[in-house]
Design a protein around this nucleic acid. Structure first.
Length: 391
DNA sequence: GATGCCGGGTA
DNA sequence: TACCCGGCATC
């Protein structure tokens, strides 16, 4: 511990002025520099994951589609037309890569209800009746289901799966667009059929789901299924720190962690919306918090990207919720959001300090005792909120 | 009384 | 900015 502490060094020490609110804000700003490299790495990783891992799969898929399409159409097209197809495909891909969200007119027309309006209430994308299907809470974390997982798990032939079937009615271009939409904006489609609420990551899958399960599978109902699903954007957009619905992940959550989504938050917006891993890095530096034995590094498995992080989030969450009695614990997301929440409310609280009750976690004073005060975390030594054993 | 920590002060 | 501490709330 001492070694760790010394490693942390005063050089890593950061502002810890008493004004918690301002201090935290300043932390966010100051830490931006320190975490810059971490974020850079993380962003690089994530961006690589998104731009290389997914596109790699997509490219493969698209290549397959194109090949399939070419096989089908070759007999009817001249080499020039094929080249034109390639050029057009390249142009489409280029344009799609530049536009974050592409929605077909059909989708817009078929979505009389604003997904946000529908979901903002509870944030639940799927209700209890849709158990068995993945869902997430937009209000807290956005465990975006990984299209790369669902699309490559070889379950394309199964009925009622994640909607990865090839839609015969749709052309390769449409499918291409659909896939690109999924990959770029992480869109999902929710079944609006009463008491269904199923959420699929594929439009064609949703159509099939509606057509087969709700419309009786009649082919003449083609296009009618468009009226029974809505597009739900699963953008990896983290709730803003002051958000009352924020369950964790702050300045988290990101610290959190294992939290992170959509386009990684911009540096200027580094806050709770930041990837939890980034947030963790941030909190690790709070008051020169000493590094615990257990670390959740921002480094994800090689296959980890923002999407996979979303899938892993629940697991990480569990690991983070280990008992404080262990003696050491990283600042938990729950604690940080509390602070950020305080920030958001501080302007109106006036002189009434909202002091949270004494936490159950042992603090440095209890753990090390007054006689070993030198082993306390900096915050405890300064009589600040303990950063080593946060509540 | 012990503890946690906010708010303010000091160098 | 780092550090310290009075004072208050809580246990």
């Amino acid at each position: 511990m001492a070694a760790v502490k010394s490693q942390a060094g005063t050089g890593a020490m950061h502002s810890a002025t008493g004004r918690r609110n301002g201090g935290l804000v300043r932390h966010c700003v100051q830490e931006k520099g320190d975490i810059k490299k971490h974020r850079k790495n993380s962003d690089l990783r994530s961006s690589v994951g998104l731009r290389e891992a997914w596109p790699a799969n997509l490219e493969q898929t698209n290549a397959v589609l194109f090949l399939q399409s070419s096989r089908v159409h070759l007999p009817y097209r001249s080499p020039e037309s094929v080249d034109m197809d390639e050029i057009m495909a390249a142009m489409v891909l280029t344009s799609l890569s530049c536009s974050p969200v592409i929605q077909s007119p059909t989708q817009r027309d078929s979505c009389p209800h604003d997904p946000l309006d529908m979901e903002c209430g509870g944030g639940e994308l799927s209700d209890g009746g849709s158990s068995g299907y993945w869902s997430w809470e937009q209000g807290s974390v956005s465990p975006v289901p990984s299209p790369s997982v669902t699309e490559t798990d070889g379950s394309m032939g199964q009925l009622g799966d994640e909607g990865l079937h090839m839609e015969p009615e749709l052309g390769a271009g449409d499918e291409l667009e659909s896939r690109w939409c999924k990959s770029s904006s992480r869109e999902a489609y929710r079944c609006l059929w009463p008491s269904c609420g199923k959420v699929l990551t594929s439009r064609v899958g949703m159509k099939r789901h509606i057509r087969i399960l709700h419309l009786g599978g009649a082919e003449q109902t083609h296009r009618e299924e468009d009226f029974y699903y809505t597009e739900v954007s699963s953008e990896e957009e983290e709730p803003t720190p002051p958000s009352p619905s924020l369950s964790f992940t702050s300045c988290s959550s990101t610290r959190s962690q294992p939290t992170s989504r959509g386009a990684p938050p911009s540096s200027s917006a580094f806050s709770q919306s930041a990837p939890s891993s980034v947030w963790q890095i941030y909190t690790e530096h709070l008051y020169q918090a000493c590094a615990p034995n257990e670390t959740i590094t921002p480094d994800c498995p090689s296959s980890c990207d923002w999407t996979s992080a979303g899938l892993l989030r629940p697991q990480i969450r569990v690991s983070r919720s280990r008992s404080v009695s262990v003696g050491e614990q990283w600042p938990q997301q729950s604690s940080v959001p509390t602070r950020s929440h305080t920030i958001s409310t501080s302007p109106s609280r006036g002189h009434c300090s909202i002091r949270k009750g004494r936490g159950e976690a042992k603090k440095c004073r209890k753990v090390y005792g007054v006689e070993r005060r030198d082993q306390w975390c900096t915050a405890c030594r300064w009589k600040k909120a303990c950063q080593r054993f946060p509540d």
